[in-house]
Nucleic acid binder design. Structure first.
Lengths: 246, 246
DNA sequence: CGGTCACTTGATCGTCTTCAATACCAGTGG
DNA sequence: CCACTGGTATTGAAGACGATCAAGTGACCG
């Protein structure tokens, strides 16, 4: 059993009576399917929870009592083999809904890589919420579809791309993170995860990740000002590499 | 554009006025969310379509006008890289719903590996159907969740398992196919797909697939009476191999 | 400082791929 | 009946990509 630091919803001074109305995650999450006037109900269904960096808040194969919505920070989702081999199936940042890939037990573990804030929804309460707000159910279906598309893309990466192509795909993905509306992906961005996390996400080893990044730098495709920061110098080249063109 | 052989719903003599009521796929598919008395509506929304083995009926990145429900046969779903590398993301057999992983365009291609019969739902009609039958939407969400669980399992396989483990996982998966209620998975079963399909599903080459199967046989774990048939002799060993235990 | 931790770099190794030849099998036509 | 054909599967030998093992670097911190 995992112990989480939960707390009643604290009313932010500026938020008035309704914390959900001012939630950073709302515009990005399934919660935007709920109309403003009903946000009170949403707030009472959610239990705000803080998770320290490095702690696990979902454990694979444990009973799935709750669903989660990430409202701050980033978590990694992963599966383990008995001997410790690990596959990270995704990174969940603000707005991400956890629990779609769930039957009675969780299909994956989740660990915070930065301090994370979550809205936790006990199973029964979410069920009720979905029953009362069909729009939210629709949104969830939409989100699930996107996840499936992403999952299939990742299968292509893991099954058929070379190490260089995987890293290029990863960098392009990261550079697009959180720039939803702009057509200009970031050219400089942070990598909140370690080399080990990147490796386990891409089905490689940390050494290969490190070497390949070094190679990209030597080839003038990127710059690495700090360990966890990247500047893209030649997007064209990286994009075509990511797409599988040489 | 792909041409499909469509036809109006033909009334099976025994089916009376309602073909959906006697559909083989119904107990396995999302259609079972629709009550008997409304099956007429379902039937009018669906367009029955026959696809010959080997023909492609969904093309990646084409506009997603329709969703499909497989009611007979099996199809492979796959993504391609520009140079022809292929990743099969799944096999869709009777009851499988295609179109969850869809935005405006299809995220994958689909090709029949045996003669396939489909119920095709034009986008607008499905939307209407979902609106009128929220239970069907719930079922779809449930199905999407299962797909996501399977996708994550496959990522673990592709990213972290050895060739032997992949084949063992694949064989165990196949032996469980279509034996939903029984606790006894089949010990003898057919593999409707070619070695090439298996390879592209597992992120390997046909040679590795062939060699590994031969090795399994030499080790007394399986028997291969015909090219596309397998008998499991040592399930315990295969199961633990599939799970990553040496 | 000494210690830890994450990352980088180098040398070697092994699994799976690649390339190539052969076997098999179903269908066709002499 | 048997040779011929095309597709599919098996088997062998050589090679490559990424893994493993090992050492070294640098940042951070008590």
């Amino acid at each position: 059993m995992i112990i989480l630091q939960s707390r009643p919803i604290v009313l932010d001074p500026r938020s008035g009576a309704d914390p959900c109305a001012h939630c950073d995650a709302r515009p990005l999450s399934v919660c935007n399917a709920i109309p403003d006037e009903d946000l009170g109900r949403l707030a009472t269904a959610a239990i705000v929870t803080e998770v320290a960096a490095g702690s696990t808040f979902i454990e694979e194969s444990e009973p799935a009592h709750s669903f989660f919505n990430v409202t701050r920070g980033t978590a990694k989702l992963f599966k383990l083999l008995p001997d410790g081999r690990r596959q990270i199936t995704g990174f969940a940042s603000v707005g991400h809904f956890l629990g779609l890939a769930v039957s009675d037990t969780y299909a994956f573990s989740a660990e915070a890589i930065e301090p994370v804030r979550l809205c936790r929804f006990p199973r029964a309460r979410l069920r009720k919420l979905l029953h009362d707000f069909p729009a939210m159910e629709q949104r969830l279906l939409e989100v699930a579809g996107n996840e499936l598309v992403a999952a299939q893309e990742q299968m292509l990466l893991l099954g058929r791309k070379t190490a260089r192509e995987r890293l290029a795909s990863f960098l392009m993905m990261q550079s697009r993170q959180g720039v939803a509306c702009q057509h200009h992906p970031r050219t400089r961005f942070a990598l909140p995860m370690t080399r080990s996390d990147i490796a386990d996400y891409l089905g490689l080893t940390i050494e290969t990740v490190s070497r390949t990044l070094t190679k990209f730098r030597a080839e003038g495709m990127i710059e690495i000002p700090g360990q966890s920061e990247v500047i893209v110098l030649n997007r064209r080249a990286l994009e075509s590499l990511a797409g599988g063109l040489a």
